[in-house]
């Protein structure tokens, strides 16, 4: 009898330790998400996917009004991505295109309760020691999925600030699908902010940023609406209007909850595109639905870049595209289950 009580107590204690450990790991995620938005940092990182390596420089500066971020490729043709206040500009081949914007929406830390429960239901989360990355001490955290419909994630978070200094996505056989790692990084003070306009400046003068020069193309498309909701923005850059499209996907992996459903304009498309986004807290799957234009040279098929897989297929005269940081089988399975359920 006494032995039984003892055993029970022991079991409880073990369970508690486990729950506690999981909680600490999940707490790390909050810190990481907070740090990604609230820390000034700048540095050079490598992105490795498939059999390629690319080097880029990223600068992230927090101003009282919002965040500014500049990403420049250091290899190959010059490419630049600028994000500010939820707006994204892309500078490729001397052309600046505003490619999209997301509405101010709940940031990761605000979504915590449901995202966190989805996370611990579908991943084994554990701390995996302390390692050194780019000269800083980092806490390693491992997210191992409980099914084979998602990838394993490994993150290296700076022990002081929580900033992610390295991330890796691992496949079924623990092979690296893609990874990011800073090789040199400056955190906090000393980050170059000369390219950022003072918070009070007129946003249009963003075109005066050294090296970033948002040219007429971008401006003509309504950058003046950066802070407001200019009518022109609706056509070009707005993240979209929330709708209930009536489209559903039945075979999403467990724990993927719908986080968004919008009708949005898309670069290079005449008609608005319906986008549904589902997330399990770590990865997201987007489903794009648009009327199929027979002239388009879009064939059915799967394409892969690092951890992201993209699958196209024509269903009921609609071109369906599924994109996600999930294995190929998951995007294919998801697409095959997409159907129109009526409004």
């Amino acid at each position: 009898m006494r032995l039984g009580v003892l055993l029970c107590g022991l079991l409880l204690a073990v369970a508690n330790v486990h729950a506690g450990e999981r909680q600490t790991s999940l707490d790390w995620l909050k810190i990481v998400a907070f740090a990604a938005h609230q820390t000034d940092y700048g540095g050079v990182f490598v992105y490795q996917y498939d059999n390629r390596v690319e080097t880029s420089r990223i600068t992230h500066v927090v101003e009282p009004d919002s965040e500014y971020e500049r990403l420049e490729s250091l290899d190959g043709p010059k490419r630049e991505v600028i994000r500010h206040h939820g707006q994204v500009w892309c500078h490729i081949n001397h052309k600046m295109v505003q490619v999209g914007s997301r509405q101010a929406r709940n940031r990761f830390p605000d979504l915590l309760p449901e995202q966190m429960s989805a996370l611990s239901e579908n991943y084994q989360v554990k701390e995996a020691g302390v390692e050194r990355v780019a000269g800083y001490n980092t806490q390693v955290i491992l997210f191992q999925p409980k099914d084979n419909l998602r990838y394993t994630r490994k993150i290296w978070a700076h022990t002081d600030t929580g900033l992610l200094l390295k991330t890796a996505v691992l496949g079924d056989k623990n092979q690296v699908v893609e990874q990011y790692a800073f090789t040199q990084v400056q955190i906090g003070a000393g980050v170059d902010r000369s390219w950022v306009k003072p918070a009070t400046a007129d946003v249009n003068s963003a075109s005066g940023k050294p090296g970033s020069g948002l040219p007429g193309a971008g401006r003509g498309q309504g950058t003046s609406g950066l802070h407001g909701s200019m009518p022109g923005m609706l056509e070009t850059g707005k993240g979209g209007t929330p709708i209930n499209s009536g489209w559903v996907a039945d075979a999403l992996p467990a724990g993927f909850k719908k986080t968004m459903e919008v009708e949005r304009p898309m670069h290079g498309k005449h008609a608005p595109v319906t986008q549904l986004v589902f997330s399990d807290g770590l990865s997201a799957i987007s489903i794009f639905i648009e009327p199929f234009d027979a002239d388009e040279d879009d064939a059915d098929g799967l394409t892969t870049r690092g951890a992201v897989n993209l699958y196209h297929k024509v269903v009921d005269k609609h071109l369906i595209t599924v994109v996600g940081e999930v294995p190929p089988r998951t995007v294919m399975q998801t697409l095959d289950s997409v159907r129109y359920n009526g409004k």
Partner: peptide, 24 residues
Amino acid sequence: DYLMAHQEFSPSTDMNGGAYYIRT
């Protein structure tokens, strides 16, 4: 374009900042 549109709403962007945009 799809990648970019997806990236805007992926939790990975929240955790890792804009570094993932290099993919797009």
